[in-house]
Nucleic acid binder design. Structure first.
Lengths: 185, 185
DNA sequence: GGACACATGTAATACGTTACATGATTTT
DNA sequence: AAAATCATGTAACGTATTACATGTGTCC
């Protein structure tokens, strides 16, 4: 059964949810999904699909839309089993722990900046988060997703809300710290 | 000035915050940090430090603790400038958007499971999130970090809280949906 | 003195990104 | 007819992971 990467598993999931797709359509799913950190670059997807087909998770059939060559990829029984096995497997600690947040990465080194610069950075972060949150909320509200597929999108919204609240919280904390320092003088 | 990866920037930040360090100590910062998605493997860190030294962001001097060979890496002016340039640069949309959450990746494909299996998966996710959140809160409370370094840790806590609340929310939603379906029969 | 953690490093491997090449289809 | 977009793919590149090799210091 071997090991599958998250990108590979997500690809199996997309193929399961959205039926047979061409490589290009798979790419677009990743490209347009706002809550994916994968770019869906062709250099990633095309080799990945070939890989998965060689391992029998997928089969492809040539498709002729007009003159265009192309292959439609479809999940095999093996592929579906692998997807289900993953989804049914116990959630590991790493899955709960591991997150990646580039704003948090910056915040970790806030110390290197002056108080003014810190606030400027956090202000910028706050603005971006607001922008992105609005987008995500629009995606969620005016979505053609079913109630189940929406749940992932909802997670994206909730996490953005939390990140925004957090940035605001630390701006307040820093402002308070600054006031305290002033008073101590 | 070239392009630096996030891991490289984080390394500069660590070196700035914690003074001269050996490669091993840098590794441990990543390994023990619960809110980093980098493993801090030696195969990543040793070449990275060499790379940064070759590009003049760092300098190293041999250190002799007992008989042990080793090199102590220290930030140069160039390195500090690069760090500050990064921290001062406007926050980009991608930094607000891009997050990685393996539980959300799973949830996106919940549809493939039966209602019972869905709940089992979410229950497992909830338990893991509780575990990890408790750890993170302990880290935050009993921490020897200064108030500024704590802010990143706080972000980790806040995001975990949000992810946990989200998982609980979708469990409720799914339960409600299920009840509705029962009633409709 | 044996076991184990500390510490430094390299090699093989895998895989995602960027950039590029190519051609079909649609739009203007 | 030219430009833009759709679509498929490859090649070069960088870099993170895993596994391994090696040796030191410490604890029992």
């Amino acid at each position: 059964m071997e090991h599958l990467s998250d990108l590979e598993r997500a690809t199996l999931g997309i193929l399961h949810a959205s039926g047979p797709l061409t490589a290009y359509s798979v790419r677009r799913e990743f490209e347009t999904s706002r809550s994916s950190h994968w770019s869906g670059s062709s250099g990633a997807i095309y080799p990945l699909l070939k890989r998965l087909e060689k391992r029998a998770y997928l089969v492809s059939a040539p498709v002729s839309k007009g003159e265009r060559r192309g292959r439609l990829y479809r999940l095999t029984g093996v592929g579906k089993s692998a997807l289900l096995e993953w989804l049914r497997s116990p959630v590991e600690e790493d899955e709960a722990r591991l997150t990646y947040d580039r704003i948090r990465t910056r915040v970790n080194f806030l110390e290197a900046l002056s108080p003014t610069e810190r606030d400027r950075m956090l202000d910028g972060a706050e603005q971006r988060l607001v922008e992105v949150l609005l987008e995500a909320q629009r995606d969620f509200d005016g979505s053609d997703q079913g109630p189940l597929e929406q749940l992932g999108t909802l997670g994206g919204v909730r996490i953005l809300e939390a990140r925004l609240a957090w940035v605001r919280e630390i701006r307040r904390r820093l402002a308070d710290m600054h006031v305290e320092q002033e008073q101590r003088r």
